[in-house]
Amino acid sequence: MATPTLLQGEQTARRTTVFMKILMASTGALFVFYVLMHMYGNLKIFFGYQAFDEYAEHLREMLTPILPHTGFLWLFRVLLILSLFVHAYAAFTLWSRANGARPQRYAVKSAAKGAARSKMMRWGGVALLAFLVFHLVQFTIAKVNFNGNFTAAQLGDSTGKLVIASFQLWWVVLIYVVAMVALGMHLFHGVWSGAQTLGLTDSAASRRLAHATAHVVAGVVVIGFLLPPLAILFGLVK
């Protein structure tokens, strides 16, 4: 890959690895925003499945009548999907670049903490992607119900009811626990990293703030997302 020549002519920022990182950080920021909203919405389950369903319906009504019913939701979904592609594409490109950048490995593994971090981000990201597919199929696309105690008729088209039914199963909850820990770890590094990539960590104070935010966001997301499933599993929400 190495080419011992000096590039000639004008270069553009849009073709650099740093630009890719900026794309990742901006899409990541969008995800963080979305995930926080999502988590907030999930907490409605504590007020019963009706509250949850009302909230979901409210999302579909957003910005009407400027947009048609579910218009905003669809726009947002498209944006998220596009972002996901961009985010994952950039991640895989940088990953393969990194492999090419050190064809001959060290005999003694680097003692630096860095290696573990980037492994965590990459494999964690792949795990998230897998989970995302599972999650979307389960609750959005196919609305699969794994719980034999509930019939389709009982659930109707209430997502709230489906959620409650699903999380009464220990293994579904387990998948979510694993996935949310992965998400937490991803954000633990990702939020700080994204802030640095966007050039927001200029001073010692802003660096501390970015680290602190990363830790808080990671913690809030993990706890916030896991509260409903665990509450349901242990019968606190029915």
Binding site: M1, A2, T3, T17, V18, M20, K21, L94, R97, A98, G100, A101, R102, S110, A112, K113, G114, A115, R117, S118, M121, H189, W192, S193, Q196, T197
Partner: peptide, 10 residues
């Protein structure tokens, strides 16, 4: 052919 940064701090 250098790799991209992932802000690991190593």
């Amino acid at each position: 052919g250098f790799g991209g940064c992932t802000n690991t701090g190593a």
